Lab assay of single mutants.
Amino acid sequence: SIEEEIKKAEEAKEKGKTFIHGDFVATTEELLDELLKRLRKKL
């Protein structure tokens, strides 16, 4: 679910890890923020 993806992305951000969502690879905090923004729009 979208909620689960958001939670996983937030955890990755806290730990400074890379998060992959489909073909979107978030390797930096900026990219994770962008991904979180996109996911929240889908809610």
Rank of each mutant, 00 (worst) to 15 (best):
S1Q: 08
S1K: 09
S1F: 11
S1W: 15
I2Q: 04
I2P: 03
I2L: 13
E3I: 13
E3V: 11
E4Y: 07
E4F: 06
E4N: 08
E5L: 15
E5H: 09
E5Y: 13
E5A: 15
E5K: 05
E5N: 07
I6E: 02
I6N: 01
K7M: 12
K7D: 03
K8H: 08
K8Q: 12
K8G: 08
A9G: 04
A9R: 02
A9P: 01
E10V: 08
E10C: 14
E10S: 05
E10K: 08
E10I: 12
E11T: 06
E11K: 04
E11Y: 11
E11S: 05
E11C: 15
A12S: 04
A12T: 02
A12M: 04
A12D: 03
K13M: 07
K13D: 01
K13Q: 05
K13F: 05
K13N: 02
E14I: 12
E14D: 11
K15Y: 11
K15G: 09
K15V: 04
G16A: 03
G16W: 11
G16K: 11
G16V: 04
G16Y: 08
K17P: 03
K17E: 14
K17H: 14
K17L: 15
T18C: 15
F19S: 03
F19Y: 13
F19W: 09
F19C: 00
I20C: 15
I20T: 10
I20H: 05
I20W: 06
I20N: 03
H21Y: 15
H21E: 04
H21G: 08
G22C: 15
G22P: 04
G22M: 08
G22L: 12
G22A: 06
G22N: 06
D23L: 12
D23W: 13
D23K: 07
F24Y: 07
F24Q: 02
F24E: 04
F24G: 04
V25M: 12
V25F: 12
V25P: 04
A26C: 09
A26F: 10
A26L: 07
A26P: 05
T27E: 09
T27H: 14
T27A: 12
T27V: 07
T28L: 12
T28F: 12
T28M: 13
T28S: 10
E29F: 14
E29N: 12
E30F: 09
E30L: 11
E30Y: 10
E30R: 09
E30D: 09
E30S: 10
L31N: 03
L31Q: 15
L31M: 14
L31T: 05
L31G: 03
L31H: 09
L31V: 03
D33I: 12
D33C: 12
D33T: 06
D33E: 12
D33P: 00
E34D: 06
E34S: 04
E34Y: 06
L35R: 00
L35V: 03
L36R: 01
L36Y: 01
K37Q: 11
K37D: 13
K37P: 00
K37H: 08
K37R: 14
K37L: 13
R38S: 11
R38E: 14
R38G: 07
R38Y: 15
R38N: 12
L39G: 00
L39Q: 00
L39T: 00
L39I: 09
R40L: 13
R40S: 06
R40P: 05
R40H: 13
K41V: 07
K41Q: 13
K41N: 11
K41M: 08
K41G: 07
K42W: 15
K42Y: 13
K42R: 08
K42F: 13
L43P: 00
L43G: 01
L43M: 05
L43S: 01
L43W: 06
